[in-house]
Design a protein around this nucleic acid. Structure first.
Lengths: 150, 150
DNA sequence: ATCGGTGCAAATGGTTTGCAGCGGT
DNA sequence: ACCGCTGCAAACCATTTGCACCGAT
């Protein structure tokens, strides 16, 4: 855990930014909620529990900074708010989501399932892929079970 | 073209809505710009050329209605505005996008390239897929050529 | 003394809503 | 007369920005 923060600190310094207490608090919240796809407001409220003086604008600015440095990914599930995910170390952002339309739960898929698809796209459309977003909408395991019961 | 509007009219009636002049004008704009990924504001301005009295709220309401009826797809490229695509007839929304990060152009891929990936997700995560969004970010053919020249 | 970073409040901008009016049935 | 639909303006809400201030170098 310590080392993760230290590495982020280095990344900030390398881009000549400081890891201020507010930024550290924000990153810690993201680390503690890695699986949660928090919105900026969610992050703000959680940071506020530990550092009540923080302002919402600072959280937005920090999240933007972290996004620019590719430390977090800004993702959009189409519900009107941006969500922020700490990027797994070493991952080139090959990380997909399953959104359950019944319960709203979001699962992550870390594997890269698109290798073959990307090859096809790159050759057939002569398009150099830098990144992608893949989201599936459907019914999760739990909700399928529940439906069977009702 | 005529038949396309007629079919949409039937879909509206089937859900007990009318194809009012404003709704028709909106649908016509969408038909005329099928490849363009228009924002609500874009649609509004184009409809206004033909029907200057229309209000922005009506366009929003119409687009929402068409989205609910799955006549159009509301898509989000992460640039802060929703965009609206007429759904191809008979397509279960298997339609992907290539966004060029140089020039902003959006290309569509009509083929469904995700068949195998979906099988894996459905079996490995026990998730029943209803729909998906797939967007690639990268450099399009034209911009690659331009870069070579500079 | 400078300057990056912060908190607050105000501004922004896309989208939604309240409401009175209109037009077809 | 009813009721769905519309236009307008106001409201909303996530996000951004202007600005004065603070704290470390």
């Amino acid at each position: 855990m310590k080392s993760r923060i230290d590495r982020i600190k280095k990344q900030l310094h390398a881009a000549s930014y400081k890891l201020t207490p507010q930024r550290e608090a924000t990153v810690l919240v993201l680390l503690e909620h890695e699986a949660d796809h928090l919105s900026a407001e969610d992050v703000f409220l959680l940071v506020k529990e530990k550092s009540p003086e923080i302002g919402l604008a600072t959280v937005y600015r920090t999240l933007e900074l972290l996004t620019d440095l590719k430390i977090v990914d800004k993702i959009n599930f189409g519900d009107g708010v941006s969500r922020f995910d700490l990027r797994k170390e070493g991952a080139n952002h090959f990380h997909h989501h399953l959104i359950c339309i019944e319960c709203g739960k979001v699962e992550e898929i870390q594997e890269d399932l698109l290798g073959d698809v990307e090859k096809i796209v790159e050759s057939r459309w002569e398009f150099t892929i830098k990144d992608h977003w893949l989201t599936f909408h459907g019914i999760c395991k739990t909700c399928k079970v529940d439906e069977g019961e009702n």
